[in-house]
Design a protein around this nucleic acid. Sequence first.
DNA 1: CTGAAAGCGCTAACAA
DNA 2: TTGTTAGCGCTTTCAG
Lengths: 322, 322
Amino acid sequence: MNRITLKDIAIKANVSLMTVSRVLNNRPDVKPETRKKIQDLVAELGYIPDTNARVLKGGQSNRIGVVVSDIKNPFYSELVGEIEDQAGIRNLSVVVADNNKRMEGERAAIQSLLSTFVDLLIIAPEGYRTEHLDNLLRKGIPFVSFGVHFEKKPYNEIWIEDILGGELAGKRFSDLGIVRPLLLMGHPKKTTTLSRIGGFIKGYTEAGGTRDNVSIVHLEVDWRVSARYVAERLLTDRHDGIFCYNDWMAMGALRALHGLGLSPGKQIPLIGYDDVSLAEVLGLTTIKIPIREMVHRLFLMIEKKEEGKIQFSPSIILRETA
Amino acid sequence: MNRITLKDIAIKANVSLMTVSRVLNNRPDVKPETRKKIQDLVAELGYIPDTNARVLKGGQSNRIGVVVSDIKNPFYSELVGEIEDQAGIRNLSVVVADNNKRMEGERAAIQSLLSTFVDLLIIAPEGYRTEHLDNLLRKGIPFVSFGVHFEKKPYNEIWIEDILGGELAGKRFSDLGIVRPLLLMGHPKKTTTLSRIGGFIKGYTEAGGTRDNVSIVHLEVDWRVSARYVAERLLTDRHDGIFCYNDWMAMGALRALHGLGLSPGKQIPLIGYDDVSLAEVLGLTTIKIPIREMVHRLFLMIEKKEEGKIQFSPSIILRETA
DNA sequence: CTGAAAGCGCTAACAA
DNA sequence: TTGTTAGCGCTTTCAG
């Protein structure tokens, strides 16, 4: 394999390692001719610096790690896409780790990213256990929590006000006269789940709905699972509206509604969450999380080395399904 | 930040660096008590090995790099998801680089992955320029091309027979009596584009269709772009069927058809390509690329250090839209 | 079974 | 403006 190293270049150019290093790092103190000669050589030989060595020496890795729950979920793939775009502009590599929707996976994912030594971790946490995040804090490893709010923890965060998101959906359902809403939710311990449920009930009851009529089901966050649930239970349980934890699950519900010969929107209102581009295609009414703006802000935070908690507000996007 | 190193452990355990290293690498020649003591210490201190140092010393990085065109395209996010899953099982990290749909981006992406030193690159190439791949070959950097077939190049490949895929769509359109098919395709120089078009024409004409009636348009691979095209041109150009380069574009076409008040399938047949899970939800007839099986095979290839070209065949999945 | 020495590619600090 | 030295954390080799 025989990678080309600084040394190779130094020898060919008849200078020392350091001179080459200086040129590569754009240091001012190199004679123009020497610089030129080295630059030509670098281009000619196709030299690629070894980030590992640089990191070992205590430098930046120019890598950022991203931990998401499931890259197949379009919310996360759009998130990673935005991060990729912003990172690309800044010449950063993105290392992605998928935790397979498991809390335990989140620990493993972080561990794996740490061993490759990234400059910063962006974590979209499962959110109901925090020891591993506390650990990062203790070790002084920089990270930002994306999406989830930990009120009592001093983590840096870019988060979204999920209670408001739930409220918007609840109010809408009440306005539409839904009397037996079905909430297809994710893991019952996740803060996001709890906030969305709490918000929904708040919005629904404040607008006149009856709390006892709200059915909440916790399912695996996967469209196939939500599709199956809706197909099997919607009619027997006589629900007249569905609010989903995210668009990914709503997509399954939509599929099932079509299968049942029901028209989403006309007969059974359906609201998703996230507003991935899929939602627009499906005509899905949903609660929008402004991913792009959040990621943009995230990078500003990184660059300015700001700390703190930045809150974004969701909004409801009305389309055909509700 | 003060990461915990081998040395820290060695000092605490009153042994040398080497003994600790041996324990961590599961070498047999360590006294059981010593091993136990060190393992306890490792767990207690939360030691995480530094992959960079290991790599520098000439070891494996346990990282694989993946270059895709656009992670927001569900085909690629599913691909990365599958790779993640397989990699996770094997304790490998996945470094993703998005080339922003640009050829030039592909070079940059590869460059960036090489500087972080991955053991292997998985590249879903744009496919109409190959110098950078030839370069990898020359340097002896292991990589596998995913999806695209380079007949005359000795690259390792897991590829899909796109001509057959196109043929299946073309035959279907001819069988359905489509007389003015519209082909919404990607970059005109990509081999995959060319194969799918060539295959379509072959299948279409062999089944009785007239070649001159086939309209081919090359668009940016993005659902918004295809949606706009269909909305603006479908009716004026009197097309009666649409075959898309992939499901991502088909999704846009579907959206536009709904907007025009046309029923996909009944009035205007629509066929996509890839069979991402989205397609199932949308009831989209499509040409299936067996991603999971391909990735599975890819990892077998990696493990056995096999070389060569492995071909998969697409199949048509009939759903509502055609 | 355990340890000492050397060196991977790079850069910070100092020296010339 | 350029070079020398040392060392980041780890593993390979060789010596106890």
